[in-house]
Structures are given as structure tokens and as C-alpha cells.
């Protein structure tokens, strides 16, 4: 999509807004319903598991707090990357894009560790309703993070090849919108799943 940007930014639009950015906000709105439905499912089935392990026996708050912190920091790196690209500082831009992606990878590594630890503790996908709702909700979020990391790395490679500049700032901005949205979803999940047991 990198190449569309140039054209898009120079197009006249009736609302004076970038079309891709508008489509992306609509997409994020749509995602709210996706996660809303998943979170509803989690909450509706809360406490209806027939067998353990139950949430309070297995969720590791200190560890997940670190993951949350990691994702918040990646959001910070993302805005810094965007600001750098917008002012044409591609050196900084490249750096912060890479940092964002790496922080995303750290989060995914943490989630991988958490999942395998839970499986080891006896909580599989089909063990009980808590397991099913937990894995599907956090797994969907993890899939979003994975896509985000791939996207960020693609941008970083583009930047390394000198094909990303202030003219494509909109592409970076949209990537950022996606990344921050994934972050706010985690903010909700952290509270609803981990802290409110």
C-alpha cells in the first residue's frame, strides 16, 4: 500500500480527510464489535467452568503486568516513529519502528511462554470454558499483534531500502493506529481477564 499513499494524499476528497485513514478508522470501529463479542463470551461464561484450573489458580499477574508494560512502551515507540517519519528524520524513524516491532515480539514471546506454561499446568483449549474463552480471546489478540509485527517489519525493511519517507507518513500513521488499537484492546483484556477474577 506504500505506493498508494502518494496518490491518496494528493487527491481531493469531499471531507478533506485521507480515504485510507477513514477506511482504517471504520475498520477499527468494526474491530470493536469483534472484540466486544469475544469479551462478552468470556464474561458470560465466567465462573461456569465445570472443572479447573480456574483463573485465580493460574493467572500470573506480575508476569502479565510486565507484558502490559511492554505493550505500552511499544505504543510509545510507535508514536515516536511516526513523529520522526513525519519530520523526515528517517534515521530515528527506522530505529523506533524496529523498537516497536521488537517490543511486539517480546509480547508475543511472553504470550507463547504463558500459553505453554498454562498447558503444562493442565489448562488446555478444551479443558474447560475458562480455557476455551481465554485462549480464543487472548489468541485473537495475539494474532493481531503478530500481524502488526509483520507489518512493522515490512515498513522497517522498506525504510532500510530507502523507500519510506515523509511522503509515506500516512502509511506509518495507519500502522500506528492499528498498533495502538491492539494496545488498547490489551488494556481492556488485562483488566477484564487478569485483574477482575
Amino acid at each position: 500500500m506504500a505506493h498508494d499513499t502518494h496518490a491518496a494524499t494528493h487527491h481531493h476528497t469531499s471531507m478533506g480527510l485521507d480515504s485510507r485513514k477513514m477506511a482504517f478508522w471504520a475498520f477499527i470501529g468494526s474491530e470493536c464489535l469483534l472484540f466486544g463479542s469475544l469479551i462478552s463470551t468470556y464474561l458470560v461464561y465466567k465462573g461456569r467452568s465445570l472443572v479447573g484450573p480456574y483463573p485465580h489458580e493460574i493467572l500470573n499477574i506480575p508476569f502479565t503486568s510486565f507484558s502490559t508494560f511492554d505493550l505500552l512502551m511499544s505504543s510509545l515507540a510507535m508514536v515516536l516513529a511516526l513523529a520522526a517519519v513525519q519530520r523526515g528524520d528517517m534515521k530515528q524513524g527506522k530505529l523506533w519502528l524496529l523498537v516497536t516491532a521488537l517490543l511486539g515480539l517480546v509480547f508475543l514471546g511472553g504470550q507463547f511462554w504463558e500459553f505453554s506454561h498454562f498447558v503444562h499446568e493442565g489448562l488446555g483449549l478444551t479443558t474447560n470454558l475458562f480455557g476455551s474463552t481465554f485462549y480464543v480471546l487472548t489468541g485473537t489478540h495475539g494474532a493481531h499483534v503478530t500481524i502488526g509485527v509483520i507489518w512493522l517489519l515490512t515498513l522497517w525493511v522498506q525504510a532500510l531500502r530507502g523507500k519510506l519517507g515523509p511522503a509515506n507518513a500516512m502509511t506509518v500513521e495507519i500502522t500506528g493506529l492499528y498498533w495502538h488499537f491492539v494496545d488498547v484492546v490489551w488494556i481492556v483484556i488485562f483488566t477484564v481477564v487478569y485483574l477482575i477474577q
Binding site: M22, W25, G29
Partner: peptide, 13 residues
């Protein structure tokens, strides 16, 4: 665009 569906999602929950 964001807030409308967000409120709807909240209403669903």
C-alpha cells in the same frame, strides 16, 4: 467512526 461502534460494542457486552 470509532466511538459509535465502540459504544455499540460496549452495549453488546
Amino acid at each position: 467512526l470509532f466511538g459509535g461502534p465502540l459504544l455499540l460494542g460496549l452495549a453488546v457486552v
